[in-house]
Write a protein that binds this DNA or RNA. Structure first.
Lengths: 215, 215, 215, 215
DNA sequence: TATGAATGAGCCTTCATTCAT
DNA sequence: GATGAATGAAGGCTCATTCAT
């Protein structure tokens, strides 16, 4: 068999095992069993268990990047549909192959410095993408001039929360579309009833002044 | 030494070790070394390594509950200050003792079913609290009638994202107050410039109709 | 409490525990729990776990001796009843307190050199007693002049086999009286039908001669 | 090295160690030291310390069965020689490799339910074999119609007693042949001098009547 | 390249014994 | 005498990694 193919088989076996059992519970024995190769063969293609996990993160990262690069940022004429389509696309990536999400969210994030750095790169890619979208519509005067990074991180966090609950933990049964729609509405229009915008804004200003006075 | 005291010492030692090295990398040997007791002593107070971790989650949960119970939900006259104060209080709990957060967020969430259930209880307590706040101001007609649970989860997720970045991973240097303030503004007023509310709402409706037509 | 009393309580607790769980599975913790004293108290009366076991063997040995010494060897006029009564008495000792038997047969026999020596003393006492009985009736011309020690050991072994099966392992449900009666009949009259005694004796002689020829 | 061979080496090492030190005192460390392999290698071939012991019992059981199956039950023309040859064969099995006997008699019998069940199977095989022999000669009218199982158990017990004393504990120096010969004589002809058979039988009857009267 | 038997450091846990109170 | 918390040696077992074939 071609070396590259062997390596790929092992990588996919590792993906399945890590997603199933988690990094620590997964053993090299499980991986080679799933790949149907001998124990020693594993070490022909990967330096260690850590190494195959790192390779896995690379693989997932690259897969995600391919998707993101396929999205045009500047064409959408309709802000809402644009946002929804684009975010849905990211969600689809993780939902198509739930193992990806299991690994990224459950395992890689806090496994060690190296892993968390790699996840951070992914997060950064997503954030940059969201930032670009927000900035695009801010420049068009449609969105208010809030810090785009803050918005991106906030949205990412909110979305991750629901994704975790729904896909990883299975605590929510609502459809991903419905959730996403509501989430976007919340982020776009905010909580406050427009009638009370002025009142609310006044309060906000007062609080700021109080705090400055206290400081 | 009084048994209760010894147990507490071991618990705190375990908290430090688990926060430092993570559940898997932490050994009972580390814990007893930190507590400066013999190996066997550990098993006088805890059934196993798992057991001490569970006890730790209980301890953190109870500590957090004490804080939350101290907050009056129905008195705040000012929505913004109320929300900010209350959320800040939760944040303070985790920030005072970063180890708490390390353990809850990095380790407990996905360690196993038992642990994730416990973390879920905590999340639930926080969500319920946020839901109560949102509902309070919805009934007062100040907030729009969005699903309070959705709002609560979204806010929790967004907040967690920043907390992780700032406290656990150290990627952000902005002050927690500033972040919280911006976050609340985002959730309250939304992204869209009020001038374009009507336009945006129209788009939203169109999208809905398109989708129904497609279905 | 009087020291002697305390010691006795511990000894009896140990007897129960050792009989229940066996020497190795029994822990000092079990013994002190059964005796309702503190862990340390145990070591006030016994040097070690081994020590309490040795003391237990002494105790059982003495109890058995008291019984045996109470039996008159020379008065019985009737050989069968005499044998049966006497053997039944030994059996009764172990059956009254099954724990005795559990400990002697299951644990002490092969635990270590010291224990097996003690059990051997007991066995010796029983054998000597049986030897005396056999010899008594041999001198009266009732029993054939077989080696009395051989007879005693053989009987002891056969009896032990049934006792183990019945009391320790629970494999036999027949009453001890019935078994004993049959056993004694077997030992007294033998297997061969008297009609064939001569024939059998001839065979026996032939075999002996063959073997001598082969040697 | 071939797996089967390694496993066999470990099994034999375990046999030696268990026979030497007993189940509890023997450590996996001792076994792997005797087999001159690493600790982990042991667990390549056996699930646990218990497991290797069980495997050992199987091995001994099978070895014994091979011997027993080689014995024709129905051909012997001479009762005495037949019995002696056959029993001697069983004895030889244990005497050739004393470790077998050490393990079966000292350790396995009362270690736990599983072990004692296995030993019981062996005992059963021997008993059945003896029963068949006895029954064979009973049908030929040579032996009296005593319960064959009782006879078999009694003989087995008596034989075990001597075997233990001689081989395991080293208390007897007489040759096994001499002992066996005497034992068989005892079982065949019984203790009572034929001249007194009638007298003895009368006594026996009287005892029975007395007991019935008392009941 | 592929194999899989062998390795051994390292982990969790138990329990007889000690000792300060 | 009595207590029971503390001890730590010892034991069973796992698993990532190596290496001779």
């Amino acid at each position: 068999m071609e070396p590259t193919e062997r390596r790929r088989e092992l990588l996919l076996a590792a993906k399945k095992i890590f997603a199933d059992k988690g990094y620590h519970a997964a053993g090299v024995a499980d991986i080679v069993a799933a790949a149907e190769v001998a124990r020693g063969t594993f070490y022909l293609y990967f330096k260690s268990k850590r190494d195959v996990f790192a390779a896995l993160l690379d693989y997932i990262f690259e897969s995600l990047m391919k998707r993101l690069q396929a999205i045009p940022l500047d064409q959408p004429e309709q802000i809402l549909k644009g946002l929804m389509d684009n975010v849905a696309l990211v969600e689809a990536f993780f939902e198509e192959d739930t193992e990806h999400a299991q690994i990224i969210i459950r395992e890689a994030m806090f496994l060690d410095e190296d892993s968390s750095r790699r996840v951070d790169e992914m997060r950064h890619a997503l954030v940059e993408y969201l930032v670009a979208v927000v900035r695009h519509w801010q420049e068009a005067g449609i969105l208010r001039p809030l810090d785009p990074e803050l918005v991106a991180h906030a949205f990412l966090g909110a979305w991750r929360e629901f994704f975790e609950q729904r896909v990883i933990l299975g605590n929510i049964t609502a459809s991903s579309e419905k959730i996403l729609e509501n989430l976007i509405q919340l982020f776009l229009f905010g909580l406050i009833d427009p009638e009370h915008f002025t009142l609310a804004a006044d309060h906000l200003r007062e609080i700021g002044e109080e705090e400055e006075a206290n400081a």
